[in-house]
Design a binder for these strands. Structure first.
Length: 588
RNA sequence: GCCCCAGUAGCUCAGGGGAUAGAGCAACGGCCUCCGGAGCCGUGAGCGCAGGUUCGAUUCCUGCCUGGGGCACCA
């Protein structure tokens, strides 16, 4: 059990003994570190409710507090705050138990969920740009976070590979190369094994045809027809789709691998294409939910207590072709069959209405019954300095691969400046530059709260000092260096003994908070809780490092204790950075 | 028009109903015979406006202002 939980229970019992709700016993880290380590504010609210004097109640709580924990001091302050400080021996005891366990004190979840994180979601017609950055790294981080917290988790890329964009790309290629066999309805195959396009071709074609469909209704009509034909199994289109799919996935696997994003499932909208027709049929005939409207099939999802307009969810267009909503419902149906009980959609906040509609249909139809958690984990837009979605100077989107190169180059430059790295092999320097560049990029993005839009700032992603990923990596690297030197000198970590230095005590107190921080991050599904804490751990370590010269310490017990504390710090930092998707170099 | 998100220091952002609202960057000033200075210590400056709930509001509620976004045959 973590220290805060332990203290909260003790104070809860004491409050109960004093005749009020044990919830008042919640103990939190002190906001006034110079006064105490922990605080409990429950006496104020509880006294108010019970019509009693807060300070009297607080005193009664202190009187009935058991002697389970050795307190160094317990005070009532101001109107009735309880200030709590435990003994140094007790801190050491807790730190030791963290060091002894294999999960750094992180508990097991109750209930344990089978979670699927739906993130990344690249459209197969485009190479990835900065807009995909957040979906990828927030999703990756949440996937890892839930895993660290003890849940069963799978990440699904959920590619956009069965909708209108495919129809558009089909007719765009037909406009360019109408002689290809894919477009000949009478052709019986076999179709060429070689793809007629590369991903760069698709990326170039896509904006052109999107604009074409917008300005020329006739083109849009053809794209819709092609989408319909594809979804209804037209052989040439399917063969072409397969090529589009292959070139996209090949490139995307490279991009995601470079980003350090790992999917367990490479599924997409097309994965459920066989389920679409039966699903719509079921919603019409069995569930009595879907109805025809202007030729389309829709589900009305408005509810009597709605305070806002709620448009119906479209299952098919008036030509019978399927949409994003249909594949999302079918995908959810499959996920529930596969017994996932928590589905996290890490998708741009602008799709909030879509998910509200889909979730309503899922509930009403029983596709996803109540116990299955459905959550849209919305994130904000990456904006330019003008407050609108980020564009490069040329007005285009910044490709993700280019962004990665920029940050890697910046990291390499920084490495060139550092004399210490000059004798590293080129290969290692390259690896470090990539790790550091990505560390800066990921930390910079993840440290923003996920729901807020933020301003894209290249300087922030290429600065390696202060509150940045590289600062954390550097802290971990320094620790590794100390532990290496210690091992070389035959020194080993030993039992953690009571801290005597303020910075040492501060570091222990910080490390002890890990379990609560993980819980909090899971609760709000927000990686920035982790970045905030990771930075605090790193700064507390730096302070400790400045104040306590570990390798030169003369008392062997103290030195062994410090080595253990340093080792624990490294484990905690590695755990946090790994959860954020940030790698720690051996040296840098 | 309706709905969602946001407004906190010069800039970029944190902030869980509690005491004196925090970081980073930028500016200025210190540390540096010592485990890696991508470091440590210090200085200045702030909750959009108006109400409400509460012993206590940056936090919860209402209204307004400002910015971004969404509102059935795109995803």
């Amino acid at each position: 059990m973590s220290l805060l939980t332990d203290l909260s229970e003790q104070f809860g019992d004491a409050f109960e003994a004093a005749g009020v709700d044990s919830a008042a016993g919640l103990v939190l880290p002190s906001q006034r570190p110079e006064l105490a380590q922990f605080q409990c504010n429950g006496a104020l609210g509880a006294a108010k409710k019970a019509g009693r004097n807060p300070r009297d109640l607080a005193q009664e709580v202190l009187d009935s507090l058991g002697d389970r924990t050795p307190f160094a001091s317990l005070d009532i302050a101001g109107p009735g705050f309880l200030n709590i400080t435990v003994t140094d021996e007790y801190l050491a005891h807790y730190a030791q138990s963290m060091e002894d366990g294999d999960r750094c004190g992180i508990g097991t979840p109750d209930p344990k969920h089978k979670v699927i994180v739906d993130y990344g979601g690249p459209n197969m017609s485009k190479s990835m740009h900065v807009g995909h950055l957040r979906a990828s790294i927030i999703g990756e981080s949440l996937k890892r976070l839930f895993r660290v917290a003890g849940h069963d988790v799978d990440g699904d890329i959920h590619m956009g590979d069965w909708g209108m964009p495919i129809g558009q790309l089909i007719i765009e290629l037909e406009r360019r190369q109408p002689e290809l066999s894919y477009f000949d309805a009478d052709f019986t195959g076999p179709y060429p094994a070689e793809s007629p396009v590369t991903l760069d071709d698709l990326s170039e074609m896509y904006p052109i045809i999107v604009e074409g469909c917008r300005s020329e209704p006739e083109l849009g009509e053809r794209a819709r027809q092609a989408t319909f034909d594809l979804q209804n199994g037209r052989a040439g289109y399917l063969a072409l789709w397969q090529h589009y799919h292959n070139v996209s996935v090949t490139e995307q696997k490279k991009d995601f691998a470079q980003l350090g994003v790992e999917f367990d499932l490479w599924r997409g909208e097309s994965t459920v294409h066989d389920r679409l027709a039966p699903l719509v049929d079921r919603l019409i005939n069995e569930d009595d939910l879907a109805v025809e409207s202007d030729g389309a099939i829709v589900v009305h999802v408005e509810q009597p207590d709605d305070k806002k307009e709620m448009p119906p969810l479209l299952l098919t267009r008036s030509d019978g072709s399927y949409l994003y909503s249909t594949t999302d419902l079918a995908t959810l149906d499959q996920r529930v069959e596969e017994s996932y009980d928590l589905v996290l959609y890490v998708v741009d906040a602008r799709q909030g209405l879509h998910f509200e509609q889909v979730f309503r249909v899922a509930r009403k139809s029983g596709i996803a019954p109540e116990p299955v958690g459905l959550e849209h984990i919305a994130f904000g837009t990456v904006n330019g300095p003008d407050g609108t979605p980020f564009k490069t100077r040329e007005g285009g989107v910044l490709r993700l691969a280019d962004l990665m190169e920029i940050v890697t180059d910046a990291a390499r430059e920084r490495l060139d400046e550092a004399a210490i790295a000059q004798d590293y092999p080129t290969e290692e320097r390259d690896r470090i530059a990539r790790q550091v560049g990505l560390g800066a990029l990921k930390f910079g993005d993840l440290s923003n709260h996920r729901t807020s839009n933020y301003i894209f700032d290249l300087d922030r992603f290429t600065s390696f000092e202060g509150k940045t990923g590289p600062y954390l990596q550097y802290g971990a690297v320094r620790i590794q260096s100390i532990l290496r030197r210690a091992a070389d000198a035959g020194l080993e970590p030993g039992p953690i003994i009571a801290p005597v230095v303020d910075q040492e005590r501060g570091l222990i107190l910080r490390l002890l908070r890990l379990p609560e921080v993980i819980d909090r991050a899971v609760e709000v599904r927000a990686p920035n809780v982790l970045t905030e804490y990771a930075y605090e751990v790193a700064t507390d370590f730096s302070r400790f490092y400045e104040a306590c010269h570990i390798l030169r310490e003369e008392d062997p017990d103290r030195q062994a204790s410090w080595l253990a504390l340093v080792d624990l710090t490294l484990r905690v930092m590695r755990l946090l950075l790994d959860t954020l998707g940030i790698e720690v170099p051996e040296r840098m």
